[in-house]
């Protein structure tokens, strides 16, 4: 139980260290960094490596943005397994929907509730 929290902490932290290295050493903008991480998540799932990582680290692997690329690919692959090539397009958002729909929904709610502090 405690071990799983520790593993989540370390794995999640390491993802962020990679991000920080891309920020500081490769001098990339946050947008580029996030895109690289998402793409690498998608590629890792293509090799079937990301699911074991989720089994291992739990939230440490599902919370970083890499899991977004993973779940997009995973949905596409799952559907492709069932329906062939067409499934690659139709299945993509099957798994990911929760993250994006939550972000859209809460973003809109936030715009109703909160006022911007930086501008009058």
């Amino acid at each position: 139980m405690m071990a799983s929290f520790l593993i989540a902490f370390v794995v999640g932290g390491l993802f962020c260290v990679i991000g920080q290295l891309l920020f500081d050493v490769a001098k990339l903008s946050p947008g580029h960094t996030l895109c690289i991480l998402v793409v690498s998540g998608a590629v890792l799932d293509g090799f079937g490596l990301y699911e074991p990582l989720i089994d291992f680290a739990g939230a440490g692997a599902t919370i970083p943005i890499t899991s977004f690329g993973n779940s997009l690919t995973h949905g596409a692959l799952q559907e492709a397994e069932k329906h062939g090539l067409v499934g690659v397009i139709t299945g993509m958002f099957e798994v990911t929907s929760s993250g994006i729909s939550a972000a859209i929904l809460f973003g809109f709610i936030a715009s109703l509730l909160f006022r911007s502090k930086s501008r009058p």
Partner: peptide, 28 residues
Amino acid sequence: GGAGSAVPVTGFGNAMISAAIEHRTEGY
């Protein structure tokens, strides 16, 4: 935190939500 706050999905959410709050004055 730098990247520590940007890499988790909370950073992704923050990017969308802050943009939504910021641009509310331009209409929904």
